[in-house]
Amino acid sequence: DYEVGESVTVMDGPFATLPATISEVNAEQQKLKVLVSIFGRETPVELTFGQVSKI
């Protein structure tokens, strides 16, 4: 299970290999909103559970 505030690594898509912090969890739809730090700015990205891995 994923929790808000948890650190994960993006495994898929254009942000693969980047660390991210979970900002929202939708367990019903198996989706997460995460904040990816790009060029010093936090960018919100919506991903599925399968696109991230716990650190």
Rank of each mutant, 00 (worst) to 15 (best):
3 E>F: 13
45 V>G: 03
1 D>V: 13
53 S>N: 09
45 V>D: 03
53 S>I: 11
37 S>W: 09
39 F>C: 15
39 F>M: 15
41 R>Q: 14
10 V>F: 03
38 I>F: 10
17 T>C: 13
24 E>W: 12
48 T>W: 11
35 L>W: 07
33 K>R: 10
46 E>L: 06
35 L>I: 15
3 E>R: 13
20 A>D: 01
10 V>K: 00
33 K>L: 12
33 K>T: 14
25 V>L: 06
27 A>P: 10
48 T>H: 11
8 V>F: 01
21 T>A: 05
14 P>C: 09
24 E>K: 05
29 Q>G: 10
35 L>E: 04
5 G>P: 01
29 Q>S: 12
12 D>T: 12
20 A>M: 03
38 I>P: 05
17 T>W: 11
45 V>L: 13
54 K>Y: 05
8 V>D: 00
48 T>E: 12
11 M>Q: 07
19 P>H: 13
11 M>L: 13
55 I>A: 11
7 S>Y: 11
1 D>M: 15
16 A>T: 07
28 E>F: 09
47 L>S: 01
36 V>I: 14
10 V>A: 03
38 I>S: 08
27 A>W: 14
23 S>L: 15
36 V>L: 10
25 V>G: 00
14 P>T: 07
13 G>T: 02
12 D>L: 08
29 Q>T: 13
27 A>V: 14
52 V>P: 00
9 T>R: 13
24 E>D: 08
26 N>V: 07
16 A>I: 09
20 A>Q: 01
42 E>W: 11
6 E>K: 05
38 I>R: 07
22 I>Y: 00
47 L>E: 01
18 L>H: 10
24 E>Q: 09
51 Q>I: 03
26 N>H: 11
52 V>C: 04
19 P>R: 13
28 E>P: 10
13 G>M: 02
20 A>K: 02
50 G>D: 14
12 D>Y: 12
47 L>C: 05
19 P>V: 15
6 E>W: 07
11 M>I: 15
5 G>N: 05
33 K>Q: 09
50 G>I: 10
17 T>R: 10
13 G>S: 03
13 G>F: 03
5 G>V: 01
31 K>W: 11
4 V>Q: 05
31 K>M: 12
6 E>N: 07
6 E>H: 07
52 V>T: 03
29 Q>I: 09
22 I>R: 00
48 T>A: 11
2 Y>N: 02
23 S>K: 12
12 D>S: 13
30 Q>Y: 06
11 M>D: 06
46 E>M: 07
4 V>W: 04
52 V>H: 00
10 V>H: 01
49 F>N: 04
2 Y>V: 03
28 E>H: 10
44 P>I: 15
40 G>I: 03
18 L>D: 02
52 V>Q: 00
49 F>G: 02
47 L>Q: 01
25 V>M: 05
19 P>K: 13
30 Q>M: 10
53 S>K: 12
39 F>G: 15
8 V>N: 01
19 P>W: 09
42 E>G: 06
38 I>L: 09
18 L>W: 14
55 I>T: 11
44 P>V: 15
18 L>I: 06
21 T>M: 10
25 V>C: 05
43 T>G: 05
35 L>H: 08
32 L>V: 10
46 E>P: 03
52 V>D: 01
9 T>A: 06
35 L>A: 05
4 V>A: 06
4 V>N: 04
51 Q>A: 06
41 R>D: 11
46 E>H: 06
23 S>E: 11
34 V>Q: 00
12 D>N: 09
16 A>M: 08
22 I>H: 00
22 I>L: 03
8 V>C: 05
41 R>N: 13
30 Q>D: 06
12 D>I: 10
55 I>Y: 07
5 G>D: 04
34 V>H: 00
2 Y>G: 02
55 I>D: 09
27 A>S: 12
33 K>S: 07
14 P>I: 10
54 K>N: 05
8 V>P: 00
13 G>K: 02
15 F>D: 01
38 I>H: 10
38 I>N: 08
16 A>H: 06
11 M>H: 06
7 S>T: 15
50 G>A: 14
49 F>H: 03
49 F>Q: 02
46 E>Y: 10
52 V>Y: 00
38 I>M: 08
53 S>R: 12
47 L>F: 06
13 G>D: 02
41 R>K: 15
19 P>M: 14
9 T>E: 07
35 L>Y: 08
19 P>E: 12
24 E>F: 10
10 V>S: 01
7 S>K: 15
8 V>E: 00
32 L>H: 00
22 I>F: 00
36 V>Q: 01
5 G>S: 03
27 A>D: 09
31 K>L: 13
36 V>E: 02
52 V>F: 02
18 L>V: 05
2 Y>A: 02
24 E>V: 08
43 T>D: 07
18 L>A: 06
